[in-house]
Amino acid sequence: MVETNIEWPWQYNFPPFFTLQLNPETRAKQFQAWKNLILDYCKKGKLYIIDVRESSHIALFNNSNINRKLDQSVIISILSELQRTGHAAPVDKSKQRWEIYWHTLDEWANMIYDCISSRGLQNSVLTLYELSQGEDVQNEEFYGIQHEVLVKALQILEKDRKCELILSDSDEGVKFF
């Protein structure tokens, strides 16, 4: 449970925000507001995974002040929209667990590589733990990044021949070029 002092947008206290709007124009606006809010919320709370089944326990989807909840099917369709822009991906086939990327994987990959090259760490090997939890990266945006997300970001770099992942033993590491 992430407790954050997020500044809720005005929509959050507007009851129709929690009902799927039928007018296409209205719905587009509604979804846009939701997408922004979800990414903002996850970013502030460092939330990488959203489980739709637990949506009623997440303040984001359940505004107890006005007693409104967002329907799970609506959540899934909003997350599917986020998926289209690379900001989310379902973990399971039933689309109940979602990884949320408030930075897209490409953005994460670039961020990590920029950091590495600025520190001149090319051609050196780092463990994934060092990369995400190490003291050196404490001030970086990707500090505390979730393991799965990190691996996916590094895989993108690997495709560009900018690093090589070593996932064989228990000590997972990465070598940057």
């Binding site: 005005w10 929509q11 507007f14 009851p15 129709p16 929690f18 009902t19 799927l20 709007q21 039928l22 007018n23 124009e25 209205t26 606006k29 509604q30 507001a33 007693n67 409104r68």
Partner: peptide
């Protein structure tokens, strides 16, 4: 697009369309 709906257990209500 002049109003938007709020479908809750209290029933269907319509609000001014602040979204737009």
């Amino acid at each position: 697009g002049k109003c938007c709906r709020d479908d809750s257990i209290e029933g269907l209500r319509f609000y001014s369309n602040l979204f737009l």
